[in-house]
C-alpha cells in the first residue's frame, strides 16, 4: 500500500537569542491511509513541533524547517508554494489543538468558525455551509446544535469547545487529522468522552490520525502504533501492543513506570523520571537520555546511538539505545522486575 505520509529526516530549528534550539532533529516515520499513530513524550521533546511542521505552521521567524522531506500523498509539502499548502490545510490535513479555551476565536460565532473551511475548500455558500455545520456539530455530540450556531465560544464548556474543534477538523473530510494533546486541558471524565469520540469518528471516516500526547495511558487504546520521542529524536518505534509488552528503551520504561496503576501495591511507588529534558540548544553529545538514564555506560555519553531494530522483538520494533541493541547490556532486562533501578544519581 502506498504511504499517505512519509516524513524523512525532518529538522525544525528555532533561532533564539540564546542559540539555535534543535526542536526536531532528524525525525522520520511513515503513516498509511487510515492508520493511527501515537507520538508520546514529555513536553519540550519536539512532538508538537513535529505536528506543526507537517502543516508548515511553525512561526517563522524564529522557527524554520531546515532539512528533510514531508511527502503527503507523494508530494513534498516543504516544496509547495504557500497557496498549495493552504489548499491542504484544513482540507486534506486538519489539526486539533491542545487548549480549546484559547484555540477558538472569542469574537466570532461557532458557525462562522466551523463554516469557514467549508466555504473555502468545498466552495459551499452560506446556506449550505450552515446546514453542514449543524450536521457536523450533531455528529460530534453537541446537543441542540441548531440553536447554538450563533453562540460564541465562551458560552460553551471546555469539553464542548473541544467537540467544536473536532467538528472543525472533520469538516472537509481530511485524510489525516493531527490531534495535539487534545484532552490535556480537559477534566478527566471529559477526556474519556473526547477520546472515544475521536476513536469512533476516525474509524467511521477511515481517517488516518496522529495523536500526540505526553501520556502513554491515553494512546494505549487509541492507536495502532506508537513512536516515543525524546529530545527532538524518535527513541522508540513499535506496534502499540508490542510497545507495552516489550518496551526497549529506558526512557519508555520511565514513562511506563510513571503511569499510575490500579493493581499497584502500596510499596510500589510511582517512580517519576529524575531530572529535566535536555537543553536542545546544546544537547548531550552522546545519547540524549544518558544524563537521566540509570542504566547508562560510558559509551552512552560519548556516541549517539542510532534508531535500529531491536533483537528478540517484532520486526518493526526499533529503539535508539546502546543497551538494548544486539550485544547490549540491557537486552534481557525486564523493566518490571528490575531491582537495580532508582539508584539516585548524585550531582
Amino acid at each position: 500500500m502506498p504511504e499517505l505520509l512519509e516524513v524523512r529526516d525532518l529538522h525544525t530549528q528555532f533561532f533564539t537569542r540564546d542559540g539555535i534550539v534543535r526542536a526536531v532533529d532528524g525525525v522520520s516515520f511513515t503513516l498509511a491511509a487510515g492508520e493511527t499513530l501515537g507520538i508520546v513524550g514529555e513536553s519540550g521533546c519536539g512532538k508538537s513541533v513535529t505536528a506543526l511542521s507537517l502543516m508548515r505552521l511553525i512561526p517563522q521567524p524564529p522557527g524554520k524547517i531546515t532539512q528533510g522531506e514531508i511527502l503527503f500523498d507523494g508530494r513534498d509539502v516543504l516544496k509547495m508554494d504557500d497557496d498549495e499548502v493552504r489548499g491542504i490545510r484544513g482540507n486534506a490535513i486538519a489539526m486539533i489543538f491542545q487548549d480549546p479555551m484559547t484555540s477558538l476565536n472569542p469574537v466570532l460565532t461557532i458557525s462562522r468558525q466551523v463554516s469557514e473551511a467549508l466555504e473555502l475548500h468545498l466552495k459551499m455558500d452560506r446556506n449550505e455551509s450552515r446546514k453542514r455545520t449543524i450536521e457536523l456539530l450533531e455528529l460530534v455530540g453537541i446537543p441542540s446544535a441548531k440553536s447554538r450556531l450563533d453562540d460564541y465560544p465562551h458560552q460553551f464548556s471546555g469539553g464542548m469547545r473541544q467537540r467544536v474543534m473536532i467538528a472543525m477538523a472533520l469538516s472537509c473530510n481530511p485524510k489525516l487529522i493531527l490531534a495535539d494533546e487534545p484532552t490535556t486541558a480537559l477534566d478527566v471524565t471529559i477526556q474519556a468522552q473526547i477520546l472515544d469520540l475521536l476513536k469512533n469518528l476516525a474509524r467511521e471516516f477511515r481517517t488516518a490520525f496522529i495523536l500526540i500526547t505526553h501520556d502513554l495511558g491515553v494512546v494505549a487504546g487509541m492507536t495502532q502504533r506508537i513512536h516515543v520521542m525524546y529530545g527532538g529524536h524518535i527513541v522508540e518505534k513499535a506496534d502499540t501492543n508490542e510497545l507495552f509488552a516489550n518496551p526497549k528503551h529506558p526512557y519508555t520504561w520511565g514513562l511506563l513506570r510513571s503511569i499510575p496503576r490500579l493493581d499497584q501495591t502500596r510499596r510500589e511507588k510511582l517512580r517519576p523520571i529524575e531530572g529535566l529534558p535536555p537543553d536542545l540548544i546544546a544537547p548531550p553529545p552522546g545519547c540524549r537520555f544518558a544524563p537521566r538514564c540509570q542504566y547508562k555506560r560510558d559509551i552512552c555519553d560519548e556516541k549517539p546511538p542510532e534508531l535500529v531494530a531491536v533483537p528478540n522483538a517484532k520486526a518493526d520494533h526499533e529503539s535508539r539505545c546502546w543497551g538494548t541493541q544486539t550485544g547490549g547490556w540491557l537486552t534481557t532486562t525486564d523493566w518490571r522486575t528490575d531491582t537495580t533501578v532508582f539508584t539516585k544519581v548524585e550531582a
Binding site: 555519553d301 547490556w329 540491557l330 534481557t332 537495580t340 550531582a347
Partner: peptide
Amino acid sequence: MATLAATASGRHHADAPELARK
C-alpha cells in the same frame, strides 16, 4: 547480564551553562 547502576560520572556536560542561564 546484570544491570548496572549509573555512576555519578558523565553528568557534568551541558548542565553548568544551562543552570547559569536559569
